[in-house]
């Protein structure tokens, strides 16, 4: 597997240089660029074609939320955005997930946790910080509470899979839970994402909560 290409976006040069050294020391990661503002991030992303963007939230000249939205609008598949935050400010985090970020991590987390989160985002086979993320989405998503009928286009199996995805389970765990092969689960997840027009699992979970699917 080739190295994950990373773009670091943070307005503090010390945060960037620290992250760069930490991440470069991982054999499966390479930092292809960095940027100090949201706007600069857009330019650098276009030039360097990263897999994952590590995005700060509060920055001068276009914040991380706007930059994430812009990146998603350009290309629904690449790059994925992992939001890096100093504090667990619920509101900012939910807004960045809504804007299209795949997950978030705390800047103060262990380097190992951070690296794991990046790998998870790059692979896309489960949620980052599943419990936190699910709670965040559940408490912020405006639910219209229409119940399981809210997403009628899903087959029964797909609905089961979506419920487990929203529960934070990885593909492997879902396979065990539903007595399916991993490949089958992968297929189901892909078709759920396609039907919900979600770019990744995080967005599918948001859609599940917002549609009232989860509250039904």
């Amino acid at each position: 597997m080739s190295a994950v290409r990373l773009l670091l976006v943070d307005d503090d040069v010390l945060v960037r240089s620290g992250l760069r050294v930490i991440l470069e020391s991982e054999p499966d990661m390479t930092v292809v660029g960095d940027a100090g503002t949201g706007r600069e991030a857009l330019t650098v992303a276009a030039d360097t074609d990263p897999d994952v963007v590590l995005m700060d939230v509060r920055m001068p000249d276009m914040d991380g939320i706007a930059a994430t939205a812009e990146l998603v609008a350009r290309d629904a598949q690449r790059p994925r955005v992992l939001v890096l935050t100093t504090f667990e400010d619920d509101d900012y985090l939910f807004r960045s997930l809504q804007a299209g970020a795949s997950g978030f991590a705390l800047k103060r987390s262990d380097p190992e946790e951070l690296v794991d989160a990046i790998r998870v985002v790059a692979r896309g086979t489960s949620l980052v910080l599943p419990d936190l993320t699910r709670r965040l989405i559940a408490s912020h998503a405006p639910s219209r509470a229409r119940g399981p009928a809210a997403l009628p286009e899903l087959t029964g199996r797909e609905a089961d899979v979506l419920r487990l995805v929203a529960g934070g389970l990885s593909n492997a765990e879902i396979a065990t839970e539903l007595f399916l092969s991993r490949e089958t689960v992968k297929t189901h997840v892909s078709s759920v994402l396609l039907k919900l027009r979600a770019r990744d699992r995080t967005q599918a979970v948001i859609a599940a909560y917002e549609s009232g699917f989860m509250t039904g």
Binding site: L14, I22, S25, K107
Partner: peptide, 25 residues
């Protein structure tokens, strides 16, 4: 948040990075 949180975050990342650069691997 803006002052102390920011300064500590930057320091933490610098310290983590520094330790890595001094650890043979």
């Amino acid at each position: 948040h803006d002052t102390i949180g920011h300064a500590l975050t930057a320091s933490l990342l610098q310290a983590t990075a520094a330790r890595r650069t001094l650890t043979p691997a």
